[in-house]
Amino acid sequence: MRRALFVLVAGTIVSGVAAFAASEPAARVTLTRLDCGTVAANDLNQFSDTDAYVGKSKNLASSCYLIRHGDDLMIWDTGLPAAIKGKPIDPKLPMDATVTTTLVEQLAQLNIKPEQIGRVGISHFHFDHIGQASSFPGATLLIGAADWNELSAKTPDKRLNPDAVRHWISGGGKVEPVQGDRDVFGDGSVRMIDLPGHTPGHHGLMVKLKNKGDVLLTGDQAHFTENYESEGVPSFNTDRADTLASFKRFKDMAKNANATVIIQHEPADIAKLPAFPQAAD
């Protein structure tokens, strides 16, 4: 009798769990690459603290990403400032940049209004990754805690420009400083990955897609393919040892997940995702 009752109760629980799972399907996740400008590294040697690129130059992409998680929308990195749209690049400067089209303009092509963006995830505090954050004042800002502490300091480092996130610094918007990794939606589909070294609070992003599989976005763990393969450390990184440790973690994660690695500044990696306005899923 007890055994029969146990089987009945267990069967009821299992059926209930199955019914709940059937009524709560996993959210569909998609990933769309957005054009956030071009960076002309006229002095590429800035990206090496061992003088690996003396006399070399390279045009780098500035890539941002739209993540759809069911009905929720998230932007990963916000690129260069919209104010430099159409600005000619000066070849005499060690580094210069321009923007062709803004994030808001591209989202409009997808019938998305800025107020529909619920989260803005930032890989790190450099100007070419926070430049258009202010276009999404209603979004929750997700940023590495150590980077946030520096941006929001009473007297920030003179090399930083907090203006793009002033809305959140002043308390006008919700900010969630991220310590370590962060499961953004609570189901493992989108994870901010702690990769300090480029900046104190630098993060990459893992996106799990049903058809394409796992995609790992570098942030600025590396800036171009050769830099990634050689694990080169830019002269402006905040911590060399942390950078190398983060390279190992990133590459181990990519290997274990058999992930598609996308170097956000590498022009050749743009083709690893469908061309805008299409999305990977």
Rank of each mutant, 00 (worst) to 15 (best):
T98C: 05
L93D: 15
Q106F: 09
P88E: 13
Q106L: 06
G121K: 04
V120R: 07
H124E: 15
L107I: 01
L103E: 12
G86D: 10
G79S: 10
Q116I: 02
Q109S: 13
P88S: 09
I130A: 07
Q109W: 13
G121N: 06
P94D: 14
T102V: 09
Q132M: 11
P94G: 09
I130P: 03
L110E: 14
I112K: 05
P91K: 02
F136R: 02
K87G: 10
S135D: 15
K92Y: 08
I122M: 08
A82W: 00
V99L: 15
Q116L: 05
F136M: 02
Q132W: 06
G144F: 10
T78K: 03
F127L: 13
R119K: 14
I112G: 12
P137A: 01
P114T: 00
Q109N: 14
P114W: 00
K113R: 08
T78A: 12
A97L: 10
T102D: 09
T101S: 08
G131A: 05
A82S: 12
G121Y: 02
L142P: 05
K113T: 02
G118A: 08
Q116P: 08
S134E: 15
P91S: 11
I84L: 10
P91F: 05
P114D: 07
I122A: 01
V99G: 09
I117H: 00
T100K: 10
Q106S: 13
P81L: 02
A139C: 08
G138H: 01
L93H: 07
F136L: 01
P137G: 03
A139Y: 00
T78H: 02
D96G: 06
K85Y: 04
E105K: 04
K92T: 15
